[in-house]
Amino acid sequence: MIILHPDKDSVVLWLHELAEPLRESPERCVQIIRQASAEVPIIQIHPVGGNFTDHVCVSLESFTPERLRLTIPLLPEWNEISCRVADEIVSAFSTRNILVAFDDFLFQKLPESARKYALPSQFQEDKYMKHGFDGLAHKWAVMQNPGNGPLITIHLAEQTTVCGFMDGKITATSTGYSPVDGLLGEKTCGKIDPSLAMMLADKIGVDAAQDLLVNNCGWQTLSPSLDIQHDTLAGQIIINELLKSIGAMAAHSGGLERIFLFGENESSIEQISVKLLHHLSGEENYASQVRFLSHALPTGKMYAELLGNLLNNE
């Protein structure tokens, strides 16, 4: 299985589920895929499908690149490159089975009150809503944790995301309109006072402000490394934001019973688990009975497991 995950300015490409991913342009991806066996299925992860799709995974034969392009206005910076990838791949490999998996599909089931920002009605269009991100990863996480009751899933990655589930159904997410909203990332600012975006745009222009908030903020500006163990400022902020997110998710999931942390970096998972456990323990703490579960695995493997499963069901 070849998996392509378009990011804002490049494509993350897994040629093998356990291999390190490549970061390439859409054109270079095509050249690389040509060298792979023609039998290998190609799956492209599309950031935001919105209401244009009613399946998490569809064949590009039925859901054509033209239709995919209709999703561009939902999040131009991310969806545009994804559509370019689809164009390149379809024109290069027209006879191959190509599937598109929508990373926001999981969040379509959230109530409207969870998906809207408090803007006037003329700005309540689909393109300005909380699309949600990292849905495929959290779908994988919930599949690893069958059973009823509240579940909170935390995907520790460059951009950490948190979701809440009740009886396997999504109830809340930390993610928003773009991948920048929510917890701070390695380079992204996360949720900050929205006035600051206006002030920065006024000072340096909209494009420069966007570049700054997407590429030059985040925990890298605070500490040379996250180093949760030694309480760096970045580490403290991440832990505080995680605790608040856990509470926010639990508010809609009926409580705190199971917390599942997953991601590539085993050491980060362990350090964060230890810190969270420390905060959530103690006789008086409501969360002292919560069960912590974790799983470290390569992202490519996670996607391959999930998408393989979806592929078999399609």
């Binding site: 920048v180 909203d181 929205p194």
Partner: peptide
């Protein structure tokens, strides 16, 4: 007031 709002959405509205 909106309260919290994705900063990229602020820039997009502009």
């Amino acid at each position: 007031r909106t309260g919290d709002l994705d900063v990229l959405l602020v820039l997009r509205l502009l």
